[in-house]
């Protein structure tokens, strides 16, 4: 193989002659903008040890909800993200975020657009440690939950496995069907559509159509149910 002559390598290694520290990547205003989108989980216990690692669950939006203890809590606005938020709470000994935080953890629920996800589906799980950041898509989260909870004893946990699949697939499909067919009153709230867009019919229509154009592809819903769409297209063409 061709080797770079030592003298050339030396010359190239000499440059740059001076290196300044990195340019700061954020500002206080930007941090504030990001923090507004975050809702921190509560630690179950006051003395819970905080680690360097943290995670954020990226969801469409959050809605306020009054818990059994009378506290107002934030929950994800869609059932799929709510399911994942509850699993995360259970596994990490956390409580749902509240309006009046008393024992805030470093983990959070974060409002993001579905366009933030590489596969345009939410929720996503953003895992941070000191060195790196990993973004897990919903498929990856579901796979990890199934692997770590059911694969060790598949026969013993058969009933739970069926139940898990039922939630992940059947209830998910039902949710997509609802989105596509029902006239959902709180659609804007579910997908965090800016209320300022009410001022422009065109702008709002663009955003809503953009959501609908993606919804049918979530978890390959359209591919798994082609007859449903053929039938709907037939209905539209005959009308």
């Amino acid at each position: 193989m061709f080797d770079i002559p030592e003298s050339v390598k030396k010359l190239f290694d000499t440059f740059p002659l001076t290196t300044y520290p990195a340019i700061p990547k954020t500002t206080s205003g930007n941090d504030e903008f990001i923090e507004e989108k975050k809702f921190y989980f509560e630690n179950e216990k006051q003395s819970q040890i905080s680690t360097n690692a943290s995670f954020s669950l990226g969801v469409h939006n959050v809605v306020e909800f009054k818990g059994q203890d009378g506290k107002r809590k934030y929950i994800p606005s869609d059932p799929v993200s709510l399911g994942q938020a509850l699993i995360l709470c259970h596994k990490n000994k956390l409580k749902l975020p509240t309006t009046s935080s008393t024992n805030r953890s470093c983990n959070s629920i974060m409002k993001v657009s579905f366009h933030a996800s590489p596969d345009k589906q939410l929720p996503i799980l953003i895992e941070d440690d000191k060195q790196s950041r990993t973004i897990r898509t919903i498929s990856s989260i579901i796979e990890t939950v199934a692997k770590s909870n059911f694969q060790k004893h598949p026969y013993l946990d058969a009933e739970l496995l069926v139940l898990n699949d039922f939630i992940d697939l059947k209830l998910f499909d039902l949710w997509i069907l609802c989105l596509l067919n029902e006239n959902i009153d709180r659609f804007d709230e579910i997908f965090d559509i800016d209320s300022k867009l009410d001022l422009s019919f065109v702008a709002k229509s663009l955003v809503i159509n953009n959501i609908y154009s993606e919804v049918e592809h979530w978890r390959a819903f359209r591919t798994r149910n082609p007859n449903l769409f053929d039938y709907m297209e037939l209905l539209l063409s005959t009308n």
């Binding site: 990547k25 930007n30 974060m110 993001v112 366009h115 933030a116 996800s117 590489p118 973004i135 953009n210």
Partner: peptide, 23 residues
């Protein structure tokens, strides 16, 4: 203009918090 920022692989918090529709 209506612009839509679609994150493909970025791990930047600025990119994924600003993804979506911009007018």
């Amino acid at each position: 203009y209506w612009k839509v920022l679609e994150n493909l692989n970025s791990k930047s918090i600025d990119v994924y918090t600003q993804s979506g529709s911009h007018f």
